[in-house]
Design a protein around this nucleic acid. Structure first.
Lengths: 140, 140
DNA sequence: CCGCATCCGGAGCGATACTG
DNA sequence: CAGTATCGCTCCGGATGCGG
């Protein structure tokens, strides 16, 4: 097991934590899904737009630019009319599919547990609020 | 989720993609780091606050509440003066440490590559802008 | 067909002050 | 000590229109 006790040292500066950097990368709504969509191979802008339900042109452009800027996605413009732009993962981008896949796998395995926990928690909250209301009413 | 307008896409519906759910979970700035901090064991509110550099009380509270709501973190309040509140990972929360660890590992391995790609890209951008300026100056 | 610029409403977040 | 309440600001993200 690689993960032993792994005690958090008392002086860890979280500002330099690499987790933060990755989160800044894929933390937004669309990045992970763009990468996921590009796992299938090279895609045109309009194809991505159609695949990723709900994304606006602006956000898609922004996300792709960001990924390109970080060297995870390659952007190829064909100077033809009408314009044709193709996006694909770089080798570096491909390596990101693994941890993202791990995340997705976790989600598929544990999402139902989480939803159940949510329901239980909501119910507890609900009952608690009812008690509060009851006690307030009683005071009057 | 309440308002599902378009569900006609024959391809993958990304709105129901589990990746999205996980990202909503750990996508924000602090969640992943709270979990990371709690890997070391039970922590008090003030301890977390000290460990996670730069987090405000408001955000820390919000993040912890969210995690508690999803059944990933347990919150125990000791009714004493001064107040004492302890947070710890639930078994479900522990399972999240793996994919998050994978993410961090990827970051540590590839962050330098990304930074290099960024620099190269920035330089290319810079040169391009220089060309633009030059051509404009030339026109005058 | 692709992408950039602009505007604008609203959510998110920090700082501060207050409570128990 | 561990929050809650409120204010104010920033920035996200959608809609629209232009340009190549």
């Amino acid at each position: 097991m690689a993960t032993m006790k792994k005690q958090v040292s008392p002086t860890i500066s979280f500002s330099t934590c690499s987790t933060r950097a990755v989160l800044k990368l894929i933390g937004d709504q669309w990045t992970a899904m763009v990468i996921y969509a590009l796992e299938g191979g090279t895609k045109r802008f309009s194809e991505l737009s159609a695949l990723i339900d709900g994304v606006s042109k602006k956000m898609l452009t922004q996300t792709l630019r960001d990924l390109e800027h970080n060297g995870l996605v390659q952007r190829i413009v064909y100077p033809v009319v009408p314009p044709r732009v193709e996006y694909s993962l770089t080798p570096l981008g491909m390596t990101l599919t693994e941890p993202i896949g791990a995340l997705r796998q976790w989600a598929e395995e544990h999402l139902n547990e989480m939803e159940q926990a949510q329901r239980e928690h909501d119910q507890a909250q609900h009952l608690f609020i009812q008690e509060q209301v009851a006690s307030i009413v009683q005071q009057r």
